[in-house]
Design a protein around this nucleic acid. Structure first.
Lengths: 194, 194
DNA sequence: CGAGCAAGCAAGTAACCACTTGCTTTTATC
DNA sequence: GATAAAAGCAAGTGGTTACTTGCTTGCTCG
């Protein structure tokens, strides 16, 4: 593996464990199996390294997309939500750290946020299409509904290990329990269109 | 104001701005208008100070309660959600920082989490009562529904300033938009019981 | 007034941090 | 096998951090 590549990978790992201040260049270099000086030969500063690492990660995390034309909304939304929830959970530590960095290091935060913003807007578009095709209640605000589902998945994935009492069911179950509530909220019948 | 008290207050403020590592004892003492040495005369270490500060804050943040016997569920839930959302938003920076501290400083995290855990369980109880009294759909999982609403409010309050594009409506509107969706989800009629 | 306590102040300690410099060793390429 | 680029290594610099020590000042209470 390329040295630069392994440095980026190590940075993501150490940052997720220790945050921006805790991710020392020493520790990152050690994790990458590389001399600390080499780190500074590839990146002009620690901030530069952090930003590169998070940016490339956000680019890689290109996700499943919702179809433009809904065929089986219940199945499509359920599968999409499961994927998204899985990804949020995988990167939960890193997401928590970047959110904490918002005031001090907004550019880092923006890297991680970009993916979420795009997905929420995609979801809102999909819901709008459902409304226009008469597959969902016409009255609700699609942005609010999208934010609600995204928020529920987000909070579950992020805070699950910090407060296990609050989630007395497994990660897999949680999506299965949340989705019917969401379908009910937007007026989507749980039976598949045949 | 008592020296100890002003130190606790300053700690909360500085921690919310800069996180655990960024909240230096120098900066906290300065914010409190107190000599740094005095800080160490009142608290045996920085960690001790942080934990005391967050713990007393969590105790103060005792919130509005849902009634044991639902009278006007729509109004009661709406007002409760508005209050909770307002509080989350007020402490959003501090909450983001404590969440980022989960791996390195779980005891700090536990202070802030305790309030949320209690409120979620109260909400779930209230929803259960609605079900038992035939005021809501009997089928849904009350824990999942509670987690969903709490999650939606949480995500809105916490990430609103990090990604304004995702929330194209004001903070006040957001609760008003989310609640009807939630009522629909749990099968609560939006008309008041007269 | 006078004893005792709380706070201020100056200075210092030991550790850690990002980052640099000068030099040697490895590795790839022609 | 020569050449050059990339990586390792030892050491150091200047800054910051939590926390300590010794001494002085001010305030309170009897």
């Amino acid at each position: 593996m390329d040295v630069r590549e392994s440095l980026l990978k190590a940075t993501v790992k150490v940052f997720a464990e220790a945050g921006a201040r805790g991710a020392t260049t020493r520790r990152i270099a050690q994790e990458a199996g590389v001399n600390e000086v080499t780190l500074f030969r590839h990146f002009k500063s620690k901030d530069d390294l952090l930003e590169c690492a998070l940016r490339t990660l956000a680019e890689l995390a290109a996700d499943r997309k919702l179809p433009d034309i809904p065929a089986d909304p219940v199945a499509e939304l359920t599968e999409w939500a499961r994927d998204h929830h899985r990804m949020l959970h995988k990167y939960r530590a890193l997401i928590r750290k970047t959110m904490g960095e918002f005031e001090e290091n907004p550019s880092l935060c923006a890297c991680t946020c970009s993916a979420t913003i795009k997905m929420t807007s995609d979801l809102a578009d999909y819901l709008k299409t459902l409304q226009l095709r008469g597959l969902a209640h016409p009255g609700f605000n699609t942005h609010a509904a999208a934010a609600m589902l995204m928020g529920a998945l987000f909070a579950d994935a992020i805070s699950r290990d910090a407060m296990p009492d609050r989630f007395p069911y497994s990660m897999k179950e949680s999506v299965d329990l949340a989705m019917p509530l969401f379908f009910q909220a937007i007026g989507l019948t749980t039976r598949k269109k045949s």
